[in-house]
Nucleic acid binder design. Structure first.
Lengths: 124, 124
DNA sequence: TTTCGATTACGAAAATTTTCGTAGTAAAAT
DNA sequence: ATTTTACTACGAAAATTTTCGTAATCGAAA
């Protein structure tokens, strides 16, 4: 049911697949290892579990499997964001936005973009 | 060490303490129960664990304990936000902000506030 | 003072998530 | 054809988080 609430490790794997497209376990594991030590079979097992949960699909390519994310990045982000706002900011998206803007540097272009979005929302 | 990364259940308890100030286990449990069924001893045990971890402090008030959050709401939010942005938006706070603004309704006043913050940041 | 009721202490079980060892398999290299 | 290499499958262990039953404690009520 909670297909849209992947665990932290699952999310790490999804990120790699979203960024690189369908990949082998080997590749995913190598990407993960750039951040921290992870055993190959650990990654394999996780991806098999995710396959069972239908978070991933896979195709046989010769003698190995190519795994593909079966949930969309943006839909997942929206879903996780919703839960995060509730749990951490008691549902106040505004508080989160203020906090995020306050604590992260951003370029003029990015700020301009956000400003435009706000202005368009204020029209309504 | 991960004092600023409370678990989900711990965060629920912290929210209640942040909102209501120092409280008894009974009170916290009643608040939790408003959202979902939780046994009294479950809440008690969690708060005792949090006490051991120094997430909470407590004082004896007659025959019961008054528990108090020992970590600050805002510091915790900032910390969790940081991790969330990394895990879910690959570190792009802007993407998160756009997503949050796009998917949550907000009042003119709130939007105005954000706009002001952005304009002040654009000055620099 | 005794009983009752509410609370805390403690330990263990259950559930979830993460890790990894071992064995089996098949293609590639020798 | 045999060996080596690189995978996958499987199951179980470890670690973490959550839940709760039972016993002990202590103040309040009778």
């Amino acid at each position: 049911m909670d297909i849209l609430k992947p665990t932290e490790s699952e999310l790490e794997i999804l990120q790699i697949l979203w960024q690189n497209g369908p990949s082998s376990v080997r590749f995913v594991n190598e990407e993960l290892t750039k951040q921290r030590e992870v055993g190959y079979t650990t990654t394999l097992k996780l991806m098999q579990i995710m396959f069972d949960k239908k978070l991933l699909s896979r195709t046989e390519e010769g003698r190995y499997h190519l795994y593909k994310a079966e949930i969309e990045e943006e839909a997942t982000q929206i879903n996780l964001l919703e839960k995060f706002v509730d749990a951490t900011f008691r549902g106040s998206a505004m508080k989160l936005v203020m906090q995020a803007l306050g604590n992260h540097d951003s370029s003029k272009e990015e700020l301009e973009e956000i400003k435009k979005l706000i202005e368009s929302k204020m029209q309504k």
